[in-house]
Design a protein around this nucleic acid. Structure first.
Lengths: 231, 231
DNA sequence: CGTGGAGTTGAGTAACTTCAAGGATCGTGG
DNA sequence: CCACGATCCTTGAAGTTACTCAACTCCACG
């Protein structure tokens, strides 16, 4: 991807949309593009956070692991999402490992470089603040779900999140167009892969979803919304 | 509180610490101080977010409530903490109700006013970005705990958070110097007041904690850390 | 002195997890 | 092209944690 492509790509993303031509050029010029193959990590949990990344395309999952081995998926990131921004500015280690679940391209900035961009372009800071505000609200919503809702509802929420982050309409439903395992869904909804499997099997019997290995299609999205919202 | 007091107070808070004299004056001048009595709310969930607040003193709890009545406490806020910042910049409704659990003073800025401050003082934006990054990490940590740890451990974590946010050393332990109910602790650790009561009763028998109605003293903080970290 | 918020404690139970074992699907190398 | 290993998925049965329901006590405050 050359610099002009980068400019025209990033100016479409919410975080950069308010910047003028010159600012976009400044931002683009100081970035380094990088390809990440499926299965590779953009960075690893615990590593010193020297860079911040923007996803240009592809799909990443952020996995957080405890010393005792337990994990959760804190978020998925697609085109236009930042990753690594939490720790980069506080100079703390990355709190998650960001694994590509599809081949993809990202843009990297050094920590110091990005801080300078923020100081030079207040509109960029403001956009980042808005972006992070939404992340916190999302995290709190998940926390609420995790502590007050039963599994089936949590799984429904997790799947609706997948849809919002990149569901593709196909004939007879909505497809999740990237590989996702029962394990992943479990880590996103706070349950085990077995429970996810049982739940999806039941839904499949009712014609609500469809799909096989690492693949999911919502046949009746409305039914899933209903499950997510039932008392 | 007059303007000079405000200036000298806020410059000690992390979010404003990097600002020069002039910037501090600018920030202070555009703020409106306000007193909140115990039990009152600085703002209510669902209300249009027209203002952002800084806690000068006192203590607030942020409660999030579902349509079905279930609640969680997303955070406690003390001197130096911002409240209302999540939604104010995105012009979404407040996602929580911020209730004072002690009489306190806060500083208020209108949404537009604070955005202008951010645009005028890039260092303020940067500090806010750092602050929000820490909030997200904290939320993700709680999410991890909520889904992978058993109640006793979660309660221990919740209490350690209380200590970090304002524990006061007293003879024979550490005191939580603001009123906190079993219900609150339950809402902070994702369990019921009954389970909290049982757990604290057991701990009290072992001499780990002490306290009565809305009151808590850690007699053996080390033991609580051990519980929070045991496998 | 009465009322309501806060806390305690017991018993029963539901919802998930854990353990277990087998089946399906993918990719890879002979 | 087929065999094999690795990953992913399914389903059953047993076990457990912590929630729910319920009754009772204690205090603070008007």
């Amino acid at each position: 991807m050359d610099i002009l492509e980068i400019e025209s790509t990033i100016q479409r993303f919410a975080i950069f949309a308010q910047l003028d031509r010159q600012a976009i050029a400044d931002v683009a010029r100081s970035s380094k593009p990088r390809c990440i193959l499926r299965g590779q990590a953009a960075f690893d949990q615990g590593e010193q956070a020297n860079a911040i990344f923007l996803v240009l395309n592809g799909r990443f999952k952020a996995i957080q692991m405890d010393p005792d081995g337990s994990q959760i998926v804190t978020r998925l990131a697609g085109a236009g999402d930042l990753i690594g921004h939490l720790s980069a500015f506080n100079e703390t280690p990355y709190p998650v490992t960001a694994v590509a679940i599809l081949d993809g391209e990202i843009l990297a900035w050094g920590r110091r470089t990005f801080v300078d961009l923020l100081l030079r372009h207040p509109q960029l800071s403001l956009a980042l603040i808005r972006y992070m505000g939404l992340s916190i609200e999302e995290a709190h919503k998940r926390l609420h779900e995790a502590t007050n809702e039963h599994v089936e509802r949590r799984i429904a929420h997790a799947i609706l999140r997948l849809v919002r982050q990149g569901g593709r309409p196909v004939e007879g439903g909505i497809e999740i167009p990237f590989p996702i395992t029962r394990q992943d869904i479990g880590l996103m909804s706070g349950t085990t892969l077995q429970t996810v499997s049982r739940t999806l099997s039941a839904w499949q019997k009712n014609g609500i979803v469809d799909g096989g290995r690492q693949h999911l299609v919502l046949r009746d999205p409305h039914a899933i919304v209903a499950i997510a919202e039932e008392q």
